[in-house]
Write a protein that binds this DNA or RNA. Structure first.
Ligand code: SF4
Ligand code: SF4
Lengths: 136, 136
DNA sequence: ACGATACAGGACTGAAAGAGTCCGATTTGC
DNA sequence: GCAAATCGGACTCTTTCAGTCCTGTATCGT
């Protein structure tokens, strides 16, 4: 459908929320409940998303009571590419541009692979140029 | 999933095939069966795709025996945007950037809409710059 | 120590979109 | 008239996505 998943959308909203809180000091951590309530995002789903962002090193977490999440870096350092890679399973624009593929059952006839890779590259560059800082 | 649908992929393959045949003279028309066989694309599905491309004015059709499809314009005139618009149901990158929307239930809190529209615009421009001519 | 709070993470369900198929109708060249 | 082709709707099957639930673990405050 050529659309970003809800995960990414929610991820962006959450990161924007965190960015408004300022850098990670541990004091400024926001809980999933807070974000979920403030931003009208389903709690459980958002919880998963935050975990994934954490796993990917985009944000840091603080466990236990008084815990929560906070940004690891400056908003201008967090690119859309990074977020998409963390939250989206498949990021290649077509099967052609999947990693390390041999061509499918159309080799010899269709010469789409090259241009598609170029297009994919251009798109990734475009996504790299968009950061959380631009969401504020 | 941030991936072009098979429809678009097949559409590109088919258009590339047509482009190799040269401009529409009626003599150079290729049948769906031909393309399907040559390119290993499921017949019925491809038939649908060609109909949609025709409806959108990208290619012209010739009915009856000796019929088929042929390009309406120069390959360099057919942009990816055009193809995607013809074959893909939803083309907005997020719900935010859907046409004419009021914001969803997050107004006031989330300020994603503006940047998202900008991003969408950039992507459309990128797609406009890619044409069938580049597939040859 | 204990209990409340909050992250960690797996498993599951239901809905929606996508891919692919089937069948009948219409057009048209031979 | 017949065969080859485009038209076009309806349908099934599969996969992906969104969302929920439930159990575990860490940690702060008292
Ligand atoms: S370039 Fe053509 S043959 Fe190769 S993977 Fe893409 S579609 Fe398949
Ligand atoms: S900008 Fe925020 S509130 Fe507006 S439509 Fe997008 S997600 Fe919803």
């Amino acid at each position: 459908m050529l659309r970003l998943s809800k995960r990414v959308e929610y991820g962006l909203v959450a990161l924007q929320f965190l960015a408004k809180r300022g850098q990670a000091t541990g004091q400024s951590a926001a809980t999933v409940r807070e974000i979920s309530d403030e931003c009208n995002v389903p709690y459980d789903l958002l919880a998963k998303i935050m975990q994934e962002l954490k796993r990917d090193g985009l944000i840091s977490s603080f466990q236990g009571v008084r815990g929560g999440y906070a940004l690891m870096m400056a908003p201008s350092q967090i690119s859309l590419t990074r977020i998409v890679n963390a939250l989206e399973k498949e990021t290649s624009i077509t099967e052609c541009t999947s990693t390390s593929d041999e061509c499918c059952h159309r080799e010899g006839v269709c010469t789409i692979k090259g241009p598609m890779h170029a297009f994919q590259g251009a798109m990734e560059q475009l996504m790299s140029s968009m950061t959380v800082a631009q969401l504020l």
